[in-house]
């Protein structure tokens, strides 16, 4: 198992807070979160429902702006970027894996993985080779032209991993990636995660309820009531 980079972290959160004002009360979801993640590192974020872990993931994915704090990747405070620059940053530097392994319906495995390349304006001539590479990593080349609707849960999640990797992001964010999988499939997915983290310059941040998943990671963070309580 590789160890986290002890030098300059890839990603750093400083005093990140998020709160909402409803008509009745002031809701504080995250309170002064500090977090450092290095290249090749795997970080698990755990916590009960409503603890704020998904909110933290959305902030890390630049989908939500925090109420306060700084978010620095490779020395750049990405919260200061415009909406368009944030989208550009997201497609070049961040990969996503969602809980239900969301696929583009009525599309093939190839077409699903091609989307990030399309939005990154990559050359059409180089796409097929790249898609083949990532499908090889998750051992799904034989399913390349199958409809995504006909895949099993484990296969869908592997396609989601391939899609997240295709633009060679600096960090992959995964929201309950094994939540709907059985034990065998969960272990297989974690193997792929470990393989990606160790063989590419990518960090992985995984939101999970599963203690076994957390044990596989380099850091396991516990969030409760919006506060970071513990660190492995």
């Amino acid at each position: 198992m590789s160890r986290p980079n002890e030098t300059e972290p890839l990603l750093r959160l400083k005093g990140i807070s998020k709160s909402y004002q409803t008509t009745e009360e002031h809701v504080s979801v995250l309170q002064k979160i500090d977090l450092s993640v290095s290249t090749n590192e795997m970080v698990a974020i755990m916590g009960p429902s409503g603890s704020g872990k998904s909110t933290l993931l959305f902030i890390l994915g630049l989908f939500l702006s925090p109420s306060a704090g700084e978010y620095i990747i490779n020395g750049e405070n990405v919260l200061k970027l415009t909406r368009s620059r944030q989208a550009e940053f997201r497609r070049k530097r961040i990969g996503f894996i969602f809980q239900g392994a969301d696929m583009f319906e009525h599309s093939t495995v190839y077409e699903n993985i091609e989307y990030p390349l399309i939005y990154a304006k990559s050359k059409p001539s180089s796409r097929a080779q790249r898609i083949h590479q990532v499908l090889e990593q998750v051992k799904l080349t034989h399913r390349m032209h199958h409809s995504s609707n006909k895949l099993s849960g484990g296969e869908r999640q592997r396609v989601a991993i391939a899609r997240a990797m295709v633009n060679q992001p600096a960090v992959i964010l995964a929201d309950e990636p094994t939540g709907q999988l059985d034990l065998d499939n969960s272990q297989q997915i974690m193997k792929y995660f470990r393989s990606i983290a160790s063989t590419t310059d990518t960090a992985m941040i995984i939101v999970t309820h599963d203690q076994n998943i957390a044990k596989e990671c380099d850091q396991a963070l516990h969030i409760e009531n919006g506060q970071l309580l513990s660190e492995k």
Partner: peptide
Amino acid sequence: TREIGLKKAIGAEDYD
């Protein structure tokens, strides 16, 4: 809606 969210999550811009 989810498809739109997914596309934006993987880098689609508003104009896309």
